[in-house]
Amino acid sequence: MIRPSRKVFTAASALTLSLGLAACGAGNEGGSGDGSTSSAGGGSAAESVSGSIKGAGASSMEKAQGEWMAKFSEANPDATVEYSPDGSGTGREKFINGAVNFAGSDSAMDEEEMASAKEKGCTGETIQFPVYVSPIAVAYNLEGVDELNLSPEVMADIFNHKITSWDDEKIKADNPDADLPSTAITTVNRSDDSGTTENFATYLKAAAPDNWPHEPEDAWPVKGGEAAKGTSGVVGAIEAGQGTIGYADASQIGDLGAAKVKAEDEFIEYSPEAAAKILESAKRVDEASKTNYAVELDQANAGAGVYPVVLVSYAIACSEYGDAEAARTTKAYLEYIASQEGQDAAAAAAGSAPLSPAAQENAKAALSNIKVD
């Protein structure tokens, strides 16, 4: 479980991230309704919130959540926020069952999950909106190979265990100038239900449908290879091996190599800027909803200069809580992490791409539905 650190990071300059989510239609009716601001205090300059709230979910957000909690607790010394990076699937399950006040997930709640939450832990409406955007790095550990290019078809064949040696002719075709060894390939995937897995598999299915026959879901679909729990587990397994390759939030891969991914006719290196571009064409799943701001990405047609392997993590909350104090603190905390200040803090600590002003307004509109009285 993560508890807030007192370490303070200098906020990086914000990137302009256009989610293509214009603050339009029914989703933007209402506003915040309580005079709250985007400060870490979650309210006016003269007030702060109190009490304890708990969250759980995506391990990809671990660094960002740690920084958010630290900054929020500095402004709200009487409030305690805890976040367990148990994985997206576990986070959603805990939210559905009412075990946590909020969840973080690398994949949005679907209609069935929201209906289940309404019967159990969230008697109101499920609120969800993008709060953390980051490239998924295709990380590898291969001695003597400092640069690696991978087309989506080759990547799909590697993770589907159709290509098993690093000197395979198909890998050579993507890397004509590289000295590729005959080392066996060991793929590393998540052992737990993971939104990062779903996002990565969604990319493979969209970009290389003939090579990746599996339907995207939180559970890894291919047997064999090595499995590890959480983002840190995957990174650790890649680091501990030789000839290993896996997928993880780019902010957490450390000194591992990261493949350049082919989009159109060029190989693109990951960066927050290159990942952010894919969201310019993202569309809301339900444009009429006041609470659901889930988006769909077009990873098969990312466009020139766009890094196409991206995860969009969501904050998930409920419009009604049995405890008014918990409602106020949850609302204040999530307003902070979606604000410019919160997004800059995550960019500095985790290398994520800050949300655009329009996406921040969408988050504020969604959170205005939380009843705090």
Results as ranks from 00 to 15, higher is better:
373 D>R: 11
34 D>S: 14
312 V>P: 13
88 S>D: 06
233 G>E: 02
343 Q>V: 02
186 T>S: 15
89 G>K: 14
276 A>W: 02
245 I>T: 15
67 E>G: 11
47 E>N: 14
311 L>D: 06
341 E>M: 07
20 G>F: 02
305 G>R: 11
367 L>D: 05
68 W>M: 07
306 V>D: 07
288 A>M: 08
349 A>P: 03
363 A>D: 04
181 P>S: 05
296 E>W: 01
54 K>S: 15
73 S>Q: 15
102 F>N: 07
100 V>P: 12
220 W>F: 12
280 E>N: 15
111 E>L: 06
38 S>F: 04
260 K>R: 15
287 E>M: 05
106 D>E: 14
355 L>E: 05
164 T>W: 03
321 Y>K: 10
309 V>L: 14
141 N>Y: 02
115 A>C: 00
162 K>E: 13
269 E>G: 13
177 D>V: 00
211 N>I: 00
336 Y>T: 08
296 E>C: 00
116 S>N: 10
273 E>S: 14
300 A>M: 07
275 A>H: 09
130 P>M: 08
133 V>Y: 04
246 G>A: 05
206 A>M: 02
254 G>A: 00
136 I>G: 02
26 A>T: 13
67 E>T: 14
141 N>S: 10
265 D>G: 11
291 T>P: 06
146 D>R: 08
246 G>Q: 11
15 L>Q: 07
334 L>D: 04
360 Q>C: 04
190 R>N: 14
63 K>C: 01
69 M>C: 08
248 A>T: 09
274 A>I: 01
142 L>D: 00
163 I>R: 06
222 V>R: 10
356 S>D: 13
268 I>W: 08
274 A>K: 12
229 K>P: 00
238 I>T: 11
101 N>R: 03
268 I>S: 06
